[in-house]
Computed example of a mutant assay.
Amino acid sequence: MKKFSKGIITGVIGTLVATAAGVFAVKKTIIDPELRKEAFINENRRKAARKRVSH
């Protein structure tokens, strides 16, 4: 019974670690680039608005 309990605990911890790694990877590869792109677009819009007003 001791080995079974140890295996279950190891499996649960492994699953949690794998899930956390997956979430972190998705955040780094999908969410962060989208946020950077959005910030870049907004910055360019502000620059264009300043140029439009200054002329």
Rank of each mutant, 00 (worst) to 15 (best):
M1Q: 14
K2R: 14
K2T: 00
K3G: 01
K3F: 04
K3R: 05
F4K: 06
F4M: 08
S5D: 09
S5E: 07
K6E: 07
G7M: 05
G7Y: 04
G7R: 04
I8A: 10
I8W: 10
T10A: 04
G11I: 00
V12S: 00
V12N: 01
I13R: 06
I13K: 08
I13A: 00
G14H: 03
G14E: 03
G14N: 01
G14P: 01
G14R: 00
T15D: 01
T15S: 08
T15V: 12
L16D: 01
V17Q: 03
V17H: 03
T19D: 02
A20H: 05
A20S: 09
G22W: 01
G22E: 02
F24G: 01
F24N: 03
A25E: 13
A25I: 15
A25D: 11
A25M: 14
V26T: 09
K27D: 11
K27G: 09
K27H: 12
K27V: 10
K27E: 10
K28A: 08
K28E: 05
T29V: 05
T29H: 03
I30G: 00
I30H: 00
I30Y: 07
I31Y: 09
D32I: 02
D32M: 15
D32N: 12
P33C: 02
P33A: 02
P33M: 02
E34V: 11
E34I: 13
E34G: 02
E34W: 12
L35P: 02
R36E: 13
R36L: 09
R36A: 07
R36H: 08
K37W: 13
K37T: 06
E38P: 03
A39S: 14
A39L: 11
A39R: 11
A39K: 12
F40A: 15
F40N: 13
F40R: 14
I41V: 14
I41T: 14
I41W: 08
I41M: 10
N42T: 01
E43L: 14
E43A: 15
N44W: 04
R46E: 09
R46C: 04
R46W: 07
R46I: 09
K47L: 15
A48W: 05
A48Y: 10
A48E: 14
A48R: 06
A49K: 15
R50W: 04
R50M: 07
R50P: 01
K51N: 11
K51I: 06
K51A: 12
R52T: 07
V53K: 07
V53Q: 07
S54H: 06
S54R: 11
H55E: 05
